[in-house]
Nucleic acid binder design. Sequence first.
DNA 1: ATAAAAGTTCAAGTCAACTTGAAGTCAAGC
DNA 2: GCTTGACTTCAAGTTGACTTGAACTTTTAT
Lengths: 139, 139
Amino acid sequence: MDIAEVAKVSGLPASTLRYYEEKGLIKSYGRNGLRRLFSANVVERLALISLGRNAGFSLEEIYEMFTPDGPVINRELLLAKADELENKIAELTAMRDGLNHAAVCKAPNHFECPKFLRFLRIAGKNKVRQPSKLKKGDL
Amino acid sequence: MDIAEVAKVSGLPASTLRYYEEKGLIKSYGRNGLRRLFSANVVERLALISLGRNAGFSLEEIYEMFTPDGPVINRELLLAKADELENKIAELTAMRDGLNHAAVCKAPNHFECPKFLRFLRIAGKNKVRQPSKLKKGDL
DNA sequence: ATAAAAGTTCAAGTCAACTTGAAGTCAAGC
DNA sequence: GCTTGACTTCAAGTTGACTTGAACTTTTAT
């Protein structure tokens, strides 16, 4: 497939595909003249990347998950990431419940609603790192 | 509370608190000389902001969720956001399962493992917008 | 054979969400 | 009452993830 076709089926702009290739997240198997040639499985790989991005992982983290770390497969890493997701799922669930409640709650201000505060507290129990970077003693 | 105390209990740097105030996400009730004074409830508000950020919402989206939209409370918006979360939860769950499986899978390459591909496909069913912006026909 | 369409590189630009630095102001403890 | 350290503003810098533009090369359709 050429880059335009990959762009079409993946929904990602060609510029993004070049960028991902540069970062080592996908690769082309060769060239037709100057033009990159991609094999079909790149599409699944891209789906996985999008999934990871959507889940809040950085491109670098995703790269690490893809890459066998030395001779051993990165079993530990994958399990750790699965665990991160587990925590995040719990958080999102609490937030979803909080929002659904807030939408119908009669309290003048959600911070005065005990139910709402309870969801907040549940969410707070799973201290998950922030999306981007966080330094020193944050949270 | 002064800014240092809020920083301490929230875990966020003072610079972030000033930034959030500038963006209208939190407010100080007054000043002691130049110094901002915050009431205690700002801490819960910050927890909610962090939760939202962690869930992948932008500061602007979070601001909108906080702000009653005209005379009517933003019921629709909150329910829509809850729904977004619902989709995201499904995606994260599929990804978590995929990772847990990949960690123990014997297949030489996950893209050849039918189980793994199934998780990918499940995740793909819920088309959720990307974390940042996405244009035209993406995904 | 040739011109348009599509691809290429590389440098620079953009955007959100902060952080950092310089220069100044105050309040509190001694 | 004076220093010191915590705070202030404002402008500029940073990072990740891309996007855009200019200048150029091919492929492909006519």
